[in-house]
Design a protein around this nucleic acid. Structure first.
Length: 217
DNA sequence: CAGTGGATGCTCT
DNA sequence: GAGCATCCACTGT
């Protein structure tokens, strides 16, 4: 599947599976294209509404200082899941992008729940639909993602990734929950969605933000 | 809503 | 031993 085909609008078309070539592109191209896609694990999931891009030149990327045991999957070929433990408690899932060795990936930060809500509620121990998948740790808990799925292909079960019939407008914001390279404008999401981990504020046009945005091109 | 602090365990220095 | 790509409960508007 070609990148140009991916970004085309698909009104009235059935959901279409995303192939491995989708991820063999710049993280800064893949990340906004992921917004609106349906992501499921064993048939449970929903619409991706928030992601963050982590290029290997980004000081906040796990791969920034080279390969280690934890981040090895990031250095492999595109189209694989990289799952890591966060704050000793949570799991977070990334989609590896770009050619093997690039070590760049997109963090899945929030999903709008569509299928398997009873299972999600049981796993999360919550009722509020808005709190089921609105954060990277919550996404993994609700979908049952652990390090057992790290290094697993994204185009084979239990994963399924589907293109939506219509692409939502994608908002760009600065990253959150991170201390290094905090003002990198590489957070993408559906503006105004109530399922975001936090609202996306309009980009501040600071020199730092503009410089890093330019560097991403 | 906004801000604060604790839980918790792995990775890398 | 420090520092997390986080979440939750609790406080005070």
């Amino acid at each position: 599947m070609s990148p140009s085909k991916v970004s085309r609008s698909r009104k009235d078309a059935p959901l279409e599976k995303v192939g491995r070539a989708f991820f063999d592109r710049s993280v800064h191209a893949v990340a906004p294209d992921l917004i609106g896609m349906v992501m499921m694990v064993n048939g449970i999931g929903g619409r991706i509404v928030e992601v963050e891009a982590y290029h290997h030149t980004d000081p906040a990327a796990h791969s920034y200082r080279g390969m280690t045991l934890r981040n090895a999957v990031m250095f492999g070929p595109p189209g694989y899941a990289y799952v890591y433990r966060s704050y000793g408690i949570h799991w977070c899932v990334n989609f590896v992008c770009e050619e093997a060795g690039s070590a760049s990936a997109v963090l899945i930060r929030a999903i709008e729940p569509l299928t398997g809500l009873p299972t999600m509620r049981r796993r999360r121990g919550l009722d509020d639909e808005r709190l089921l998948c609105s954060g990277p740790g919550r996404v993994c808990q609700a979908l049952g993602i652990t390090d057992a799925l790290s290094g697993h292909r994204l185009d084979t079960p239990p994963f399924s990734l589907l293109l939506p019939p219509e692409k939502p407008d994608v908002a760009v914001g600065v990253r959150i929950g991170i201390t290094r390279a905090m003002d990198y404008p590489w957070r993408y999401g559906v503006a105004g969605s109530r399922f975001l981990s936090k609202p996306i504020k309009p980009l501040e046009q600071s020199a730092t933000v503009l410089a890093s945005a330019a560097a991403a091109r």
